[in-house]
Design a protein around this nucleic acid. Structure first.
Length: 313
DNA sequence: CGAGTTTGACCGGCGC
DNA sequence: GCGCCGGTCAAACTCG
């Protein structure tokens, strides 16, 4: 990673840049007194330009603050909506499971009867687990159908996660072998995956996922990961009397992740361990996002140039 | 040599 | 109790 490793929750870039001696300054000292009227005019012009730049910087700073606040509000709204969606999905799953139990529909029939989309997904409770009596532990089961080349014998469904195959079996109702996978991206991830070709349509790979990942998807884009899991990252670029500084206030982010604010949104971490690893992941992603953000770069350049101007006055 | 895959053996649930 | 079946284990094997 080319980005710096930031320790602590608050990042502060203090741009204490040593005054740079411009060739112009040398010219001034050498020929002091010889061109007073020209120097005066230049100084007035520079003061005027610097004033304009400082005003522009202040304006940008205000706008940045306003946008940060808007972003925070948007993310809070998003989290609230997401928790509502989760509740609705859970309720739906419960009713679906009951329905399927009564109808005695096998999973294979359901999959074959699904739409002929190249890729589809749905979630349901494990009625198999319910059958075995362990109704307390609800394992999330989802299926995904992927259309592949029928001549391709590999049972690989690309979903961004890292899987380790631990078994293969030919089942009674399907001549195609079923492969068993465990998630190997995180050592304690409980998710399992079964992949089997559809008996009726050999070009259709049916992947059945059991359980939920306790880690982010390794292939998830940085922006999506940030938006889904963290919300806004408050940051500001400012020019003060003591000099310009760019501050990333991650304390708010941390509060949101660990404190009441975050948990009240229904986004509780599953374990402390995963929370710590996720924090590290997010900090890296934030650094990456900021370094790519042209707006952030512009603000930084403006702050540095403002500092130069102040020093040269 | 270590990590991942293959494959036969084994285990537990279920129906008869 | 027995056989069937799906799921898992683990030793052997392969590959980089």
């Amino acid at each position: 990673m080319e980005h710096p490793v930031w320790i602590g929750s608050s990042l502060n870039f203090d741009l204490n840049i040593n005054p740079i001696k411009y060739p112009d300054e040398e010219f001034k000292t050498k020929e002091a007194g010889s061109c007073d009227s020209i120097d005066m005019g230049r100084k007035i012009f520079e003061n005027h330009e610097a004033g304009k730049l400082v005003a522009e910087l202040n304006r940008m700073n205000e706008e940045n603050k306003r946008l940060s606040e808007m972003l925070t509000v948007m993310c809070e709204n998003y989290n609230a909506l997401r928790s509502q969606l989760d509740d609705l999905t859970n309720n739906n799953n419960k009713s679906n499971a009951k329905k399927r139990k009564s109808e005695s529909v096998t999973e294979e029939n359901r999959v074959n009867g699904s739409t002929a989309e190249s890729s589809s997904s749905e979630e349901e409770d494990s009625f198999k687990k319910a059958r075995t009596g362990s109704t307390d532990v609800k394992i999330k089961v989802s299926t995904k159908c992927v259309r592949t080349d029928p001549s391709d014998t590999s049972l690989i469904v690309k979903d961004g996660y890292q899987w380790r195959k631990y078994g293969q079996k030919v089942t009674r109702d399907n001549p195609c072998p079923r492969a068993y996978f465990k998630c190997s991206f995180a050592p304690i991830c409980p998710v399992k995956k079964k992949v089997q070709r559809s008996a009726e349509d050999r070009s259709l790979l049916v992947a059945t996922y059991e359980g939920e990942h306790n880690h982010p998807n390794p292939s998830m884009p940085a922006e999506a990961a940030l938006g889904l899991s963290l919300g806004a990252v408050p940051c500001s670029a400012s020019v003060t009397s003591t000099g310009p500084s760019v501050t990333l206030d991650l304390t708010k982010t941390q509060q949101r992740m660990n404190g009441q604010d975050y948990s009240s949104q229904g986004c509780k971490r599953e374990s402390e361990e995963s929370a710590v690893s996720q924090q590290q992941f997010f900090v890296e992603q934030m650094a990456s996002s900021l370094s790519k953000d042209p707006g952030f770069k512009a603000a930084l350049v403006a702050a540095i140039s403002g500092r130069f101007l102040q020093r040269s006055l």
